[in-house]
Structure formats: C-alpha cells, structure tokens
Computed example of a mutant assay.
Amino acid sequence: MLYDSQEKYGAVSRFFHWAMAVLIFWQMLKLFDRINEGEHWVGQVLVPWHISIGVLLLVLIIVRIGWFMSQRANRPPVDEQLAVFVKVGHGLLYLGMVLMPVTGLAYMVGKGYGLTVFGVQLVAKSDGIAWLASIGGLHPYIAWTLLVLIAGHIVMAFVHQFIKKDGLLQRMLG
C-alpha cells in the first residue's frame, strides 16, 4: 500500500521516515566528530559526506512535506487530548529538518567556502557574505535542538508502543 490509511502509514511515508532517520543519524555523528576533534573513524569516513547528505536531506524534506500535505486526511487519527502537543512536536521536527540544511548551506556560502554536492560544484568559493555566515552560525544550535526533539520523538514512540499499547510504532513499521 503506497498511500496512508487510518490504520497505518503507507510505503511512501514509511520510506521518507526511515530513510531520513538513517541519514539524520549519519549527520548527527558530526556532533561527536566536533566533540572529539575529528580524530576517529567518524571524522575520516562519514564527515566528508556531511554537506552532500545535508543537501539530499533538504530535497527529501521538501518532497516529504508535499507528501505529508497530500496524505494529511488519510493519516491515522491522533488522540484529541494530545493533538496540540503532537502538532507542535511534529511541526518543530519538520522546522528543524528544514533549518538544518538551510543554515548549513548559509554557513558554507556565507564563509566563502563554496558549495560542492556529490562532487558537483554548485557555488564557487568566494570572499563570503557576512550576513549569510551569521545565519549559518545558528547551525550547531539548531543541531542540538533537533537532537533533543528527535530524542523526545523516539521516547514518545516507545511510550505509545509499550505504555499506551496503541500500536503507533507498528503503524510506522508496516
């Protein structure tokens, strides 16, 4: 089943969720690279792909938002008592997933590093743009905030599965 239904999320929604979860996890490893100053396998193997994966995530989140909007009426129901929290929580997750690559791109271009994605140069190196670099300076703060939001998302999925026992996690697993 490609489309979402009242019983479970469709294959497209599940693909976006889990593919982006893996890619975001990959990206978050950069935080630990920063903590340990890149002197380990993460800094050597995964970090060189950070910018390219970030741009891929930006494309995926834009398409995912479009898909979400088209499937909104088909989604499994939300507990009415918690609807505001669910909407705010998911809204903040989506906002964070948009702002992360946008601020990352702002940092790269603003600092004059240029932008090369999967080996293709999209923006040449330059002298930089100070105001754009300032916006890019928000990137690490948004990363830590997004990490907290993701942790909360995971905790709530387990609460639904093991405490409420409402099958929410099963709907996303297929």
Rank of each mutant, 00 (worst) to 15 (best):
A11Q: 12
V12T: 10
F15G: 13
F16P: 01
W18A: 03
M20F: 04
A21R: 06
I24W: 12
F25M: 08
W26A: 12
M28D: 04
K30H: 15
L31Q: 11
L31H: 09
F32S: 07
E37V: 10
E39K: 11
Q44A: 15
P48Q: 07
W49L: 13
I51P: 11
G54L: 03
G54Q: 03
G54P: 07
L57E: 14
L57H: 08
L58A: 13
L58V: 06
I61D: 03
I62D: 09
I65M: 05
G66N: 05
W67Y: 06
Q71S: 02
N74A: 10
R75F: 02
V78S: 09
D79E: 07
D79K: 08
D79I: 03
L82K: 11
V84M: 14
V84Q: 10
V88P: 04
G91R: 02
Y94N: 00
G96C: 01
M100H: 05
A106D: 00
V109R: 04
K111R: 10
G114V: 04
T116F: 02
V117T: 05
F118E: 07
G119A: 01
V120N: 13
L122F: 11
V123A: 06
V123Y: 12
A124R: 12
K125T: 15
K125C: 06
S126R: 08
S126Y: 06
I129A: 05
A130Q: 15
L132E: 01
A133E: 13
S134C: 14
L138N: 07
P140W: 09
Y141L: 13
Y141I: 07
W144Y: 15
W144C: 00
T145Q: 09
L147C: 12
V148F: 13
L149C: 07
I150T: 10
V159Y: 01
V159H: 00
Q161Y: 06
F162K: 05
I163V: 14
I163L: 10
K165Q: 04
D166C: 00
D166M: 04
L169N: 04
Q170D: 15
Q170H: 14
M172P: 02
L173A: 08
L173Y: 12
